[in-house]
Computed example of a mutant assay.
Amino acid sequence: MHQPGTVSSSLHEHVQIGDTLLISAPAGMFTLDTTRTNPVAFIAGGIGLTPLLSMLQTVVKQQPERSAQLVYAVRDHHFHAFAEELQQLAAQNPAISHTIFYENGTEEDIEQKHCDYVGRITEAWLQQHIPADAEVYVCGPRPFMQAMISILLRKGITMENIHYEVFGPALAFSVD
């Protein structure tokens, strides 16, 4: 059994050109609904940012007036993916905002504008900053997504407005 985060390494170390891999499509219905105009929030943990960044780019191109917020939790600046691209997207559209949390960051990271907060995304922060009528997309490690979805549900956002992607078998989340 692989430890979390080691699948890519295993593929690089053991799979050769010409090998056949049995794979499946991503689980869930994880596509951005561009027919909606209510605010949209993207909540990413770690590399879960990848599909959410693509959705944010779609909002910028196809719905430039739609309010969009990206909330990104990452270990520290060494793991901060797409930093420049996020800055550029927010700079080119005033309806776009992004907030970065470094779990293991320092006050220096905040001073140097690498992140906005040190620590984890809190329930209080989400309660204050995510609009009640938002359509929310969540992607990241399973425990992260479980925590975020539970908070969003307590906030009153319905499962109809919460979309998530599981990198692995399609499993339902329990609700606190």
Results as ranks from 00 to 15, higher is better:
135 E>Q: 15
146 Q>V: 06
117 Y>N: 15
139 C>Y: 02
121 I>P: 12
131 P>I: 03
115 C>P: 02
149 I>Y: 01
131 P>S: 15
149 I>A: 11
123 E>P: 11
137 Y>I: 01
119 G>K: 01
126 L>V: 05
124 A>S: 13
133 D>E: 12
125 W>R: 09
153 L>K: 15
127 Q>S: 11
125 W>Y: 12
126 L>R: 11
151 I>M: 11
150 S>V: 10
129 H>Y: 12
133 D>W: 00
147 A>R: 03
116 D>M: 06
115 C>Y: 10
143 P>V: 04
137 Y>K: 11
129 H>C: 07
144 F>I: 05
120 R>V: 14
151 I>W: 07
111 E>I: 07
141 P>G: 11
154 R>C: 00
121 I>A: 12
139 C>K: 02
148 M>Y: 01
143 P>E: 07
111 E>V: 09
128 Q>M: 10
122 T>N: 08
139 C>I: 02
115 C>R: 11
133 D>R: 00
126 L>Y: 03
151 I>K: 06
146 Q>K: 08
126 L>S: 04
118 V>S: 10
147 A>P: 08
143 P>L: 01
111 E>D: 04
142 R>D: 15
147 A>E: 11
114 H>G: 00
134 A>W: 00
141 P>H: 03
141 P>N: 06
141 P>E: 14
124 A>I: 12
120 R>Q: 15
117 Y>M: 10
139 C>D: 03
146 Q>D: 13
130 I>G: 04
140 G>D: 11
149 I>G: 10
133 D>I: 03
133 D>L: 03
153 L>F: 12
118 V>N: 12
124 A>R: 14
144 F>S: 09
148 M>E: 04
145 M>W: 01
121 I>C: 09
132 A>I: 09
136 V>N: 04
154 R>W: 04
111 E>M: 05
132 A>V: 08
130 I>A: 06
